[in-house]
């Protein structure tokens, strides 16, 4: 089957001259990739799954004892871990919703002929090209209650963006929105430019209102590509670490990735953290599956 799909090797090529067959060349490309995947992804994945059923600690010489589902039971009955999950859910919701609204809004604004459109689009894309840690440090200065420029412009005096436990998570989400709304904008722009112009012309002839045109033509046609952006951003937001870690250390901003890092690399509870990582993995896979199902539904429409 595979050989039918493959195009045949040109008999005059250098590879053919060296006596390499189509199959050899295919193997030359594929085997290293598969070996890499097995060694660095699949093997650690299975190895950590085994660890998740033990009380292993990488920092000691003590042998790992099999504890069954104890780690999973302990984690799922720990109120602090549930708090981490609910904080993460809240963060994903705020951050992804914000990115979609801002990103799609920007794309709508840019989807028309305006002067210097290319330059504006490029400038808007800059935030997502920066490193997360740099963005975190940079916004920490902007949010500073003593000399931060944000309070100065908003006239908020000494408002404590990152120190106030009730506000800190929103402050981090704002930074994430600033950084990643351009990504949603970029994909939305691609979707918007693919909407056939004759549909809008027909709507205009029918004297359809702007809102009607948006909800009946623009949104349904952009929806599939917008869904892809949402899937990507949800997965990324779910595992956010750097931004939140750099910006604030409030218990109200302790996302699951931060808790997992502390458990694995500060407390060296290797078995327990492997179990935790599996719980997170299952959740991400489940959420992504729901999205993909919905995406297929949207596409079918």
């Amino acid at each position: 089957m595979a050989s039918q799909v493959m195009t045949n090797l040109d008999p005059k090529s250098r590879a053919a001259a060296k006596g390499l067959s189509d199959l050899t060349i295919r193997n030359l490309f594929i085997i290293p990739t598969i070996a890499f995947l097995i060694i660095f992804n699949i093997f650690p994945l299975l190895y950590s799954l085994a660890y998740s059923f033990t009380d292993f600690r990488a920092s000691t010489n003590a042998p790992a004892n099999f504890v069954g589902l104890q780690n999973y039971r302990d984690l799922l009955s720990d109120p602090f871990i549930w708090k981490n999950f609910s904080i993460t859910a809240k963060y994903v919701l705020i951050s992804v919703t914000g990115q979609v609204l801002v990103g799609f809004g920007l794309a709508m604004l840019l989807n028309r002929s305006i002067p210097a459109k290319g330059l504006i689009t490029t400038l808007l894309l800059l935030p997502m090209m920066l490193s997360m840690a740099v963005v975190g440090l940079f916004w920490k200065l902007l949010y500073d209650p003593n000399f931060g420029i944000i309070n100065y412009f908003l006239g908020l005096d000494k408002f404590e963006w990152l120190a106030d436990p009730d506000v800190a998570l929103y402050a981090i989400a704002i930074v994430d929105i600033w950084m990643w709304a351009p990504f949603v904008m970029l994909l939305s722009l691609a979707g918007l430019s693919a909407v056939p112009k004759h549909l809008y012309e027909a709507a205009e002839i029918d004297r359809a209102s702007g809102i009607y045109t948006f909800f009946r033509i623009t949104l349904p046609l952009v929806a599939p590509i917008l869904m892809i952006a949402i899937i990507f951003r949800t997965m990324e937001a779910f595992k956010t670490f750097d931004l939140a870690y750099v910006l604030s250390s409030q218990p109200t901003t302790e996302l699951i990735a931060i808790r997992l890092y502390k458990m694995a690399f500060q407390e060296w509870q290797t078995g327990m953290s492997s179990a935790f990582a599996y719980i997170v993995l299952i959740m991400v896979v489940a959420i992504t599956n729901i999205y993909v199902k919905y995406l297929n539904k949207v596409k079918a429409r």
């Binding site: 500073d144 003593n146 000494k158 404590e160 990152l162 120190a163 604030s248 250390s249 409030q250």
Partner: peptide, 17 residues
């Protein structure tokens, strides 16, 4: 601990990390 918390109320703004 109560005294330490009281001291926190006399710190500059943003003194949370």
């Amino acid at each position: 601990l109560e005294n330490y918390k009281k001291l926190y109320s006399y710190t500059p703004p943003g003194w949370a990390k």
